[in-house]
């Protein structure tokens, strides 16, 4: 923090009495600095912890028509094992014979073990004012138990390889009214949209930095937002129709990005603007 303030002070001094373009550049740079300061100040007291607490409660409490907790839900490291589970997802699950990300696997357990219908299990994936999402809370808890763990998504099973290959192709699919693909914004180093820096998700470095910070408490949303939400909201802004929650495309894209993030230390739930 002190280093950042010192840098901003030096820049401010330099900017006094500058010419037209230089003033723009100076005003522009200090705007970016101020935002960085705001982001640093946000780190203490992440409201995501409120979702983590609720999620832990949901994980351990018997629920649904079957009155069963998630103790028998296998996220890839054995029934009920949460520690480190997110860092190895998505993965192929033999009992479902498909590749699943966390949210898909949670829906699977809710349906197969707790007795919910598919419709009920998927009806409220993204919370809003006065409308809490259980999935968001569960994701917050489970991901918090992978904090500090290195991403280690395997790609041994043919369906895991297939999911990655499909995700890689989907990433560059130009479509919609604006001809956008994921690549349009996330395919180059050092770019930003307005004042929001954009990670280059086609590189290992970019994927590592970005994927390890989701889910996140989005201050502007006042909600804990998951990776399924992130994909859904990207496509909305790309002028595509609506991405279906836990659809095959959402899993393939998650596989592509999570696998590219391998080796990086997972550090979520984080807090973002």
């Amino acid at each position: 923090m002190p280093a950042m303030i010192r840098r901003a002070a030096v820049r401010a001094a330099f900017c006094v009495g500058a010419t037209a373009i230089a003033t723009t550049a100076c005003a522009q740079t200090s705007a970016v600095d101020e935002i960085a300061k705001y982001r640093a100040a946000l780190q203490d007291g992440n409201p995501a912890e409120l979702w983590e607490a609720r999620g832990e409660d949901l994980w351990k409490t018997p629920r649904g028509p079957g009155k069963v907790s998630f103790a028998t839900c296998d996220l890839g490291l054995g029934p009920g094992v949460v520690k480190g589970a997110y860092a190895q997802l998505p993965k192929y699950f033999a009992d479902a014979d498909r590749v699943m990300d966390l949210e898909t696997r949670l829906v699977w357990c809710m349906v197969k073990q707790q007795g919910y219908s598919e419709a009920d299990a998927t009806k409220n994936p993204f919370g809003g004012p006065g409308q809490k999402s259980d999935i968001e809370a569960l994701v917050a808890y489970i991901t918090s138990e992978s904090r500090g763990v290195k991403m280690n998504v395997a790609m041994d099973h043919p369906k895991e390889k297939e999911a990655f290959a499909l995700g890689e192709k989907m990433f560059v699919y130009r479509g919609g009214t604006h001809d956008f693909a994921c690549q349009t914004c996330h395919g180059e180093d050092g770019k930003r949209i307005r004042l929001q820096d954009l990670p280059n998700l086609m590189t290992v470095a970019g994927a590592q930095k970005a994927y390890t910070t989701w889910p996140a408490y989005r201050v502007s949303q006042g909600e804990l937002r998951t990776f399924q939400w992130r994909l859904n909201d990207c496509f909305r802004q790309q002028r595509f129709p609506e991405l279906i929650f836990t659809s095959d495309a959402s899993i393939a894209l998650t596989m592509y990005l999570a696998r590219n993030a391998n080796g990086a230390v997972f550090d979520a739930p984080s807090i973002k603007r």
Binding site: A165, L166, K169, M170, Y173, F235, F240, P241, E242, L243, I244, S247, D248, A249, S250, A252
Partner: peptide
């Protein structure tokens, strides 16, 4: 990929 993509939207 195109086919799976199209089937994943509403």
């Amino acid at each position: 990929a195109a086919a799976v993509l199209k089937a994943s939207f509403r």
